[in-house]
């Protein structure tokens, strides 16, 4: 076994900042929607939600820059390699104590399922939320200028809300799956400190 830095400083900052922002936006968003939460008060919740949205956008811009310049974006390219084995592992193998079919490597720290999930998160959920949120915010400016029918705000709102529910579901699954490491807290510790123990013979062909 050897200890390596699997998650660099910026990556960890980006991950946890994004987690905090999205969590707070969930709370403020569901309070504004009137789902029974009374944490910030409506007016403050709206203001906070919008400020956090801009903050998240800035963070995403930095993250994209980081991913491009470091080449880390390649980590998210979806692959079919070992995909079937991963699914089999989560459906049956994990209960029998079977070994993890994919070993982590500095250059391939995500298994094929993670790649799919995070890729989807980045190119689907986040863009949908950003776009629908921006349309929602600028609706009063756009509505008459573009001659949209009155029902369009309803459509925007529903898309945004469904995206939010999707995020909550993602969060639950995501947090649960962090417990599937060596010990339930191994993965979270790695995401906090950056360090993770990888097996000595870990080798992954980079192509």
């Amino acid at each position: 076994m050897r200890r390596v830095v699997l998650y660099e400083g910026f990556e960890r900052f980006w991950h946890w900042a994004q987690a905090l922002l999205i969590l707070t936006m969930m709370l403020t968003g569901f309070e504004v929607r009137g789902l029974g939460l009374h944490l910030f008060g409506f007016q403050r919740a709206v203001a906070l939600h919008n400020i956090l949205a801009v903050t998240l956008l800035v963070l995403i811009v930095f993250a994209i820059f980081w991913h491009i310049t470091t080449g880390e974006w390649r980590q998210y390219i979806p692959t079919r390699k070992f995909l079937r084995e991963m699914i089999a592992f989560y459906v049956t193998g994990i209960f029998k104590g079977a070994p993890h079919p994919v070993r982590k490597h500095r250059m391939a720290k995500l298994n094929p399922l993670q790649r799919l999930a995070y890729f989807g998160f980045k190119v689907l959920i986040i863009p949908v939320q950003v776009t629908s949120g921006a349309l929602y915010y600028y609706y009063p400016n756009l509505q008459h200028a573009l001659g949209w029918p009155p029902a369009s705000l309803w459509v925007i709102a529903v898309v945004h809300v469904l995206g939010a529910f999707g995020l909550v579901a993602f969060l639950i699954g995501h947090v649960y799956l962090t417990t599937t490491g060596h010990t339930p807290l191994t993965n979270i510790k790695a995401m906090l400190t950056g360090w993770e123990e990888l097996e000595d013979d870990a080798y992954f062909d980079e192509t």
Binding site: R33, G34, W154, A157, V158
Partner: peptide
């Protein structure tokens, strides 16, 4: 005639 945040939820969305 319009969607109002907090008032309208859309049937079945929640």
């Amino acid at each position: 005639g319009f969607y109002l945040l907090g008032r309208d939820h859309g049937t079945g969305v929640d």
